[in-house]
Amino acid sequence: MVDRDGAAAHKADGAGNDMSMEAIVARFSDPEAIAGYEEGPVRYVPGLADLHRMTGVLLAEYAPDDARILVLGAGGGMELKALADARPGWTFVGVDPARAMLDLAERKLGPSAERVAFVHGYIDDAPEGPFDGAVCLLTLHFLDAQERTRTAGEIRRRLKPGAPFVAAHVSCPQAADEQQRWLSRYAAFAVAAGEEPERAEKWRSVTAANRNLMLSPEENVAILEAARFSDVAQFYAAFTWRGWVAYA
């Protein structure tokens, strides 16, 4: 399930600092909470549209014109729509634990929804594949290192040999002073993009309270390598966000 308010903390809205998966899914099963979800990511994730565009470029380096792509955290449909529009021959499996967000994705995709098989659940509920590529954007930061490694391994197991995997999520240095500096910049960007200062500060504070989920870039690379991905390379960096491409 993608972070639809643009930050790891936002999934805990209405649940204090509770970052459990149950609290996250509950928030994004609330129609009121998801009604304007698209406004959040563009305010909190610098270059979101370009991140989607780069994801398609990286997948297309190896994925054929008739590729079948696994999208984990597909609720809302923003990346699905971008990929479907860019590659009319691709089909997709979109997986998300929040049914309401999958319904929203289907509406957003319009006629392109015919090219997507929606799966309500987690990575273990996804088809076995093999897939020509996989995507997980703004999602893996909800998992601790152990579960993140297991999930990455399950994604890799479903890919064809050499198939690309694109991931992007919260990641920043672990030293307290550096982390606070980057979190402040993250909030400042949101305000510059139109967010209310009080709300931006709220999410900065809640995100800071869940620092155990904000692994360093080096730790995230190590997780992908532990999941047996090869040639891991960072392609995106935007304040508290990082993106990597790796190969099965």
Results as ranks from 00 to 15, higher is better:
L140W: 08
R242H: 11
D103E: 15
S171F: 11
A134D: 02
G89I: 10
F92C: 09
L137E: 00
E196P: 00
T91R: 10
N210R: 15
E225K: 14
R148Y: 04
A63L: 10
A248R: 14
G77M: 11
V170H: 13
D125L: 11
V57K: 09
D125K: 10
P164I: 15
A246T: 01
E219A: 15
L51W: 06
A12M: 14
A168F: 04
L72T: 05
P31G: 04
T149C: 08
E225R: 15
L137K: 09
F229Y: 12
L104N: 08
W244L: 05
N17I: 11
A49L: 05
Y236H: 15
R242S: 01
G56P: 03
D13R: 15
A105G: 10
D125N: 13
A145W: 05
E201W: 01
Y37V: 08
S29F: 01
A209H: 09
G121D: 06
L80M: 04
D30I: 11
A126Y: 03
L72I: 15
E219D: 13
G56L: 04
L143D: 02
L109P: 02
A248L: 03
P31W: 04
A86M: 05
P46N: 10
F239H: 09
K160T: 04
E195T: 08
A187I: 11
F235L: 07
R156A: 14
A187V: 09
R157H: 08
A35D: 02
R157G: 01
R43Q: 09
D125T: 10
H120I: 07
A233C: 06
A200K: 08
V71N: 07
V42M: 06
Y37F: 12
T207D: 02
R99H: 12
F189S: 00
L72H: 07
A98I: 14
M21W: 11
F92V: 09
A208P: 00
K11E: 05
G133K: 08
A226K: 10
N17V: 12
F118L: 07
G40C: 10
D231K: 15
E61Q: 12
M1N: 07
A208R: 12
S205D: 12
F229W: 05
K202C: 00
C136S: 15
A12N: 01
E22V: 12
R27G: 03
M54K: 13
I223G: 01
K11R: 10
L143T: 04
V93D: 04
E61N: 08
A187E: 02
H169L: 06
P130V: 14
E218I: 12
G56N: 03
K11Q: 14
V2E: 14
L213P: 00
